[in-house]
Amino acid sequence: MEAPARTLAKETAIAATETEFTAEQVGWRFALGTVILVGAYIAWPMIPFVMAADLDPGFKAGLSGLLGATPFLSKFVAVAVMGRPAYYFLKRNVYARLRRRFAGTPAE
């Protein structure tokens, strides 16, 4: 197990090599990626409607499988749409919030 000071230095070194992007730089691509991520979860509640529909069983199975995998697949599409600036912006902000949230929690 690494010492806390060594781990902190390693995290700081990693963070220092990433380019800092502002909200203005990520712009519409970040917003579109967020809409894709959130909108993909609308697919799951549609599965019961597909199963109740009068469709060919093979088509019904394929469509329900696609709807079930949509939230997973949407993450790849959203990251591709967002691009590197938005990915680093999102990563930096999420990690900063998590660090603040769990800073006082002892590690096990």
Rank of each mutant, 00 (worst) to 15 (best):
L98H: 03
L8E: 15
R92I: 10
G39H: 01
T70Q: 03
G83L: 01
A52Y: 07
L66T: 10
A3W: 14
M82Q: 03
F59Q: 10
F59L: 13
G58H: 06
A40D: 00
R92Y: 04
E2G: 05
P48S: 08
P48L: 06
L55T: 10
A103I: 15
K75H: 13
A16G: 11
I47G: 01
T70H: 01
R101S: 13
V50E: 02
E24R: 04
L67G: 00
T12W: 10
V50Q: 05
F76E: 03
A103Y: 14
Y41E: 11
Q25S: 01
A13G: 09
E20S: 06
T7C: 07
R100Y: 08
L32C: 08
T105R: 09
V81H: 01
F30N: 05
K75N: 14
A78R: 00
F21R: 02
K60I: 12
L67S: 02
S74K: 00
Y87N: 04
L55F: 07
R6S: 14
T22G: 08
G58P: 12
G58V: 13
L67T: 07
L66K: 01
L55H: 04
L37W: 00
L66M: 07
L37S: 00
T12E: 14
A15F: 13
L73V: 10
P106T: 11
A40T: 02
M46S: 04
S64Q: 05
F76M: 04
G68D: 06
G33Y: 04
A5G: 11
Y41S: 05
K75V: 15
K10T: 15
R92G: 08
T19N: 07
E24K: 09
Y41D: 03
G104Q: 15
G33R: 00
A15S: 13
V50D: 03
V50S: 02
L98A: 10
F49K: 09
V38G: 04
Y87F: 08
G62Y: 03
T12I: 15
W44P: 09
T19M: 11
